[in-house]
Every structure is written in structure tokens, then in C-alpha cells.
Amino acid sequence: MNPPPIADLTDVSFTYEDGTRALDGVSLRIKSGERIGLIGENGAGKSTLCKHLNGLFHPAKGKVLIDGEDVAKSKASHLARTVGYLFQNPDHQIFKSTVYDEVAFGPKNIGLRDNEVADRVERYLELTGLSDLAKSPPLMLSFGLRRMVTIASVLSMEQRLIILDEPTAWLDYGQAVLAKEAIRGRLASGAAMILVTHDLQLVAEMADRVVIMSGGRVVADGDAKKILSDPDILMKYGLDPPPLTKLANELLSEEAASEIFAVADFINAVKKKKWKASK
């Protein structure tokens, strides 16, 4: 028996008040536990799409079902139990006087019992490396740490679908490693993910399906490895292939190039001399 998709969009269109058509007949089905990389240029409609998934926007045309429920009939604050949303700017949400209270805010809102809230907060502070800062005022932390606080805030709500807008931007290397680990933990327990980012290397690491948007439409949707190793389609929609992909496509045979996702793959191809045929 197939469980219902966690998110199901049918022919969704949306136009802003100023007349900009941000979504134009988007259909997308996201299965439970799926890891999607949502990519495209600024203004392609990625954020607008995501805001439809947690009820911040209601479609002008079409239908959005979350866990089988029509979003139009539900409040965003209620949908927050099922869908989590990490926004880019931490300063748009931080308001508590301690890191601990800030992270506890979401779990409390969705009605968890006190001991469960405490348990979640401690667990996610640990995972994001913030345990020692639990009593610090979050607004005084560095930008990277403020972002880590918001990552802990979202993950601690343990929703079944998490939307992550540039989760590793403005994090330093160590913070990014921690953040990715914490996110992987949620994915391992079955949460689905929509990763919105310009960092295709990150998509390669985290996602198994890639959706490309352009001009308010879904223009490509498929296996992450297949799409990410195809520089032509990426360039067509203004995206920059990761340096490794570019190098592989310059030097290696087409077949070999389509299998390069990690540095190790590249080394193997070099060892096996899978060179591109000379012109």
C-alpha cells in the first residue's frame, strides 16, 4: 500500500498583486521521505512555490494538498505541525532573550508537553553545537551562530516535510558540517526535504531528486545525479554546474562524465583513462 504523498500540487498558479506571475501551472508530487533539490535563478518562483506548501500563500488557481489535506482550508500556524520552513534571514524571527527559549518557541507552539519540549531543545542544541550558548542572548551572537539557532528552531519541531532555504549560506565550514549532519538526522527518520539553494554542490550531497524552476514553471524534474551531471540543461536555466562537473565534461568521456559526483569518482575515471575522444 502506498502512503499518500506528503505534498501534492496540481496545476498551481499564483500572481502577485503587482501583476507578476510567479507560478504558472505547477504540478508536483512529493513522496514521504523524498529529498528534493529545488533550483533555479532568482525570481524563478522557488520561494513562491514553497510558501504554498506551508499555507503562507493560497493558490489563485489549482490545488495544494499537504498530507492529503487541502491547504486552502487550513491555517499556516496549523500546517506548521507538518511543514517546517527555514528562512534565510535569522533576524526575521529571533526575539527571545535566550537561545534555549528561542529554540523552544516552535515546539511549544505546536502543543508539545513541557518535558518533550525540553528534550527536543536539548537534543537539537547539542546537534547544532549550541549547548554551551543555551543561556546566551541569541541576538548578540554572530550571524553564523544566529543562523544555527534558526536551524535548531526548525528541526526541533520535527515536521514531516522541511523546506530549507540556503541552509548553509553564511555558515563557516565547521557550522555547515554540523548543520548538514543535523539535517541528515531528520531525513534518516523519514522527513521529506525541499532544499532551495544556488549551491549545486550542496544539492549533489543532500538531494536525490532535482526540480528546476524557471519563469514560474517546473522545467526539469528528475534524478539528481542525471540532472546535475548535465551542464547543458543547467546552463540553459542560468545555473552554474559544480566545478567538478564542468571539469569532467571537458576532459572525460561522456559516459564517464555522467557518473562524476564526488572527487573519488573523478580519480577513478582518471585512473581508468576514460578520456574524452580528441576532436
Binding site: 563557516d172 565547521g174 557550522q175 555547515a176 566545478p243 567538478l244 572527487v263
Partner: peptide
């Protein structure tokens, strides 16, 4: 990495 900087991918290669 110890300075918190993500190394260039091609450097790793």
C-alpha cells in the same frame, strides 16, 4: 577547514 573555510572542490581533487 580548521579556519572554518570550505576548501575549493578542485583543491581536494
Amino acid at each position: 577547514k580548521t579556519y572554518g573555510i570550505e576548501p575549493p572542490r578542485l583543491q581536494i581533487l
